[in-house]
Computed example of a mutant assay.
Amino acid sequence: MPARWSTRSCWSSSRCSCGPVPARRWPPRPSYASLSRVVARDLARPSITVPADLPLAEALRRAEESGARGIVTATTDGRPVGVVEADAVRSVPQERLPWMPVSAVARSLADGRVLPVSIQGDDLLGVLRRTPASEYVLVGEDGSVHGVLATADIIATMRSR
């Protein structure tokens, strides 16, 4: 008997003779078909854009003040160049925060981690497969930063559908 089938013959009784039934899986596997309706814009975390040489303590203060859940580093002309990794921030000792530039805990966006805010469905899935990352920066048509897209949020959305 295949592993996906239960040895019980029915959901309601162990004495039923209706034949094998599928075993319940918990937690259920995410359905990639549910990703076709996901638009990156809807999952974007609010973020702030800061200069790469700003002290990390100041960037964190600004993010907390504005309620942002992501920090993007940018050039002087506003082009995004990095996204701050939360795990990297947590690894910095508290007393070093004022002296460390935010760029020291930011991952470069040079490797395909900048996405259009309107990306959705199969296109989004293709990017996740080609360029796996924990976070991506979403930009509008004019190149302005719209927010940060976290892979964890995509997975949570897929599991909830």
Rank of each mutant, 00 (worst) to 15 (best):
V81A: 00
Q94G: 09
R62K: 13
L56I: 13
S144H: 10
T73G: 00
R45A: 12
R37I: 12
A63E: 00
A86N: 04
Q94V: 15
G82F: 05
P27T: 14
S103C: 05
R8V: 00
R41V: 15
L97W: 04
G78C: 10
A133C: 13
Q120A: 11
C18W: 01
R130V: 07
S13I: 03
L97P: 00
C16V: 08
S103I: 08
G19H: 07
E95W: 00
P98N: 14
P28T: 12
A3E: 12
V102H: 02
P28W: 09
A68C: 07
E85A: 04
P80W: 09
A152Q: 08
D77A: 12
V50Y: 03
V72M: 03
T157Q: 08
L109F: 10
Y136T: 15
Y136N: 10
S9W: 03
R159V: 15
D77Q: 07
V114T: 11
I48Q: 05
I71Y: 03
D111E: 12
A57M: 09
A3F: 01
S118C: 04
W11L: 06
A57F: 00
V81R: 03
P22G: 04
G140F: 00
E85T: 14
V102A: 01
P132D: 12
A110H: 04
V50T: 06
R161E: 08
S6V: 09
R90P: 08
T151G: 06
G126P: 05
L43D: 11
E58I: 13
H146G: 07
V148H: 01
E141D: 15
W11I: 10
P46H: 10
D77F: 00
R8L: 00
A52C: 04
D87V: 14
L109N: 06
R130Q: 13
P101V: 07
S118A: 14
T151P: 12
D77N: 11
T151F: 02
D122W: 02
I48S: 06
T49G: 05
L97C: 06
R45K: 08
V114Y: 03
W99I: 04
L97E: 15
A59H: 09
R96W: 15
T76W: 01
T75I: 01
T49S: 08
P116Q: 06
V81E: 01
L97N: 12
R96M: 04
D111K: 01
A68Q: 05
S118Q: 12
D153I: 13
